[in-house]
Amino acid sequence: MTQNIVGHNLVEIDNLSFGYKGRLLHQGINMVFPRGKVVAIMGGSGSGKTTLLRLIGGQIRPAKGEVRVDGHVVHQQSREGIYQLRRKMGMLFQHGALFTDLSVYENVAFPMREHTDFPETIIHDLVLLKLHAVGLRGAHKLKPAELSGGMARRVALARAIALDPDIVMYDEPFAGLDPISMGVICDLIRTLNDALGTTSIIVSHDVKETFSIADYVYFVANGTVAAEGTPDDLNKSTLPFVHQFVHGEKDGPVPFHYVAGDYKQALLGLEA
């Protein structure tokens, strides 16, 4: 799994460091995302999971190391080069990020209108095909404001796969959904991945759902890859951090309390 065969891995993250204003968020991260697989990046809130997606998409530049997409080093690309790479990517944002001034139909048609010269009839057929794939063909006339959270995310998924990308990135696809919608999304990610032959990168902290569909999982903590492996491996893992995360224990290597002074002293008002 970790071996580096050129052409086998669609996305490779190599010794990557990234930080804001001197504070490093990531230190020497190595990850590979093989073609056709569903790979999950997991970690607690604020561990920089979403930032990794933005690094893959070339929206921000790494401090050290590099991200390669299909053999191209992302941060060395020109503006056009990055746009060229992004046309192979689809991204599902945490809250869908649908264009609120456009209808569902126009949202899905948006990438096609921007990047292709397809005639209206073909766009129409393609949009309905994509919407049908996420089960929302009947909702094409609605505005994003009229959709529920789960529906909005499915429309966003239809938009992300509008141009049949090689890579689909999911930013917290399960966050804030009811169990039914969660199941639907879960199922869609796996089905679309296998049907379209794409590579999926999921960023999430929902263990159950992620483990049910991922082929391989990376755990990110304290700016490094703390653990990696297949869901089965990780379920059996005895690493304290992984154990705490997977089983949702309150205290462990990740402390319940934010770093603070002595509680008794604070109560007595002695703390500076």
Binding site: M91, A97, T100, F110
Partner: peptide, 15 residues
């Protein structure tokens, strides 16, 4: 549009 990541989404769609 920025707060709801619509601009970010557009950028990721190479627009």
């Amino acid at each position: 549009m920025k707060a709801t990541e619509q601009l970010s989404a557009m950028e990721m769609m190479a627009v």
